[in-house]
Design a protein around this nucleic acid. Structure first.
Lengths: 231, 231
DNA sequence: CGTAAAATTGACGCTAATCAAGGTCCGTGG
DNA sequence: CCACGGACCTTGATTAGCGTCAATTTTACG
């Protein structure tokens, strides 16, 4: 397989760092290219976790669905992010679904193949552990938020996390550069669209942020920081 | 270092599985024995994650503390469990504290040493990834619980998880064989001791379980399963 | 221009957090 | 042996926070 992506973006990818370009090529050659269109899925929760991917382009939403049909958004991934890395090495099914939000390009490896690669290039395994560790720490932080903070604080903090991950500087402030519905915000923070709508409206009135067509721009991040703390 | 623990229990340890006894000895020889008494800590949240451990004997509680001083219990570990495995490979501080609940014996490795071992024995890294993956999936399940279920359901499900992990068959049912205060149950489920107390009392009246001196015995697990689902 | 999806807003009622008061169990020391 | 203090637990009353429903408005898009 030939991935037509510049070296630079591959070097930035956490999975392939500290691996020589030659080895990188060998590793990529073993993988398969996969393109996924918006609304389609890389995989669904509950399926056997036979493949893992590195996202090269596009945005992906990671979400769980409960028996009652409620979605819970675990997070978003951008280029360089890993899909299924967490579980591909344990024999458990995917614990969540990965949905493309934009046209996506990824490299995928079959589980056993990746195991073989990792045995051959241990740095690959170390990098995976690093990636998983960071994701784990973040999930733990969000778990704590859910266990101890009120809805307003959780929404404020969710926005700040999104700023960190997808923030683009614009004249007025920082734009969260993904399509972000009230629904998604609610699913990230364990509440419903009504509460989220109320808060966003109020913050907009107060000049803290600006909401327009599924795009939110943060004008006064420091205000959100304060709101996110326990008073 | 010589660990005076039988081969059998080492073979059961997820980190060392599929590793030859000879290699296992080399790996263990590189580690350092550490004993920790009840109430003492392997490490505290926020410290540099320079060490990782495999627990050989004893029980450990993993918990976060919020700025407001509230604890959030992430989980418990028994023999064979890994401490700090999740983050020891990423350069982030420990995201939680690990407190011994019984006299504990563990083997510890310094981060760079473990990296070297993993490069030499890639199976070690694969095993770590497997362990982390399982823990990740469980945390995600609990995250979803917190986001979508009511307190009663969460407490019921927490008890069922504890049964799976620490259940010992006794004549009347299944004993959860760790000291389990109302406080800890509350900290596991994102609520407070009052709610937990009410529920446990009610379930005791209904004959679902039996509570006595920080020990809980489940008499009718199927009832708890039903309570844990959405009606 | 019309339809559907997304967002808003107010009203209502339930869930769960909080507060207060008292109880039980246990080890320690008089 | 019994009294005392502390940790842990229980229970009721109160209230704040939040989820839910209904009605309406706004926005996207064919």
């Amino acid at each position: 397989m030939r991935i037509t992506v510049d070296e630079e973006s591959l070097a930035r990818c956490a999975l392939l760092k500290e691996i020589s370009p030659a080895e990188r090529q060998t590793i990529l050659a073993t993988g398969q290219e996969r393109r996924v269109m918006p609304g389609e899925y890389f995989f669904h929760q509950g399926e056997a976790s036979d493949w893992l991917y590195i996202l090269l382009a596009g945005q992906v939403k990671l979400a769980q669905v409960t028996e009652a049909g409620n979605q819970v958004v675990i997070g978003y991934l951008g280029p360089g992010g890993g899909l299924g890395i967490v579980v591909a090495l344990s024999n458990i099914p995917y614990p969540l679904s990965a949905e493309a939000m934009e046209p996506c390009l990824a490299v995928g490896w079959e589980r056993e193949e990746m195991k073989a690669l990792m045995r051959r290039y241990p740095q690959l395994a170390l990098n995976s552990l690093g990636m998983v560790g960071e994701r784990f720490a973040e999930l733990q932080e969000r778990f704590r938020d859910l266990a101890t903070r009120r809805v307003e604080q959780r929404v404020a903090r969710a926005l700040l996390r999104l700023v960190r991950q997808f923030g683009k500087r614009v004249p007025q402030g920082v734009l969260i550069d993904i399509p972000l519905s009230r629904q998604s915000l609610a699913e990230m923070t364990g509440t419903n669209i009504y509460q989220v709508s109320r808060m966003v409206s109020r913050w907009e009135k107060e000049g803290v942020l600006q909401s327009d067509h599924q795009r939110i721009t943060i004008l006064k991040a420091h205000e959100l920081v304060i709101l996110g703390e326990d008073l």
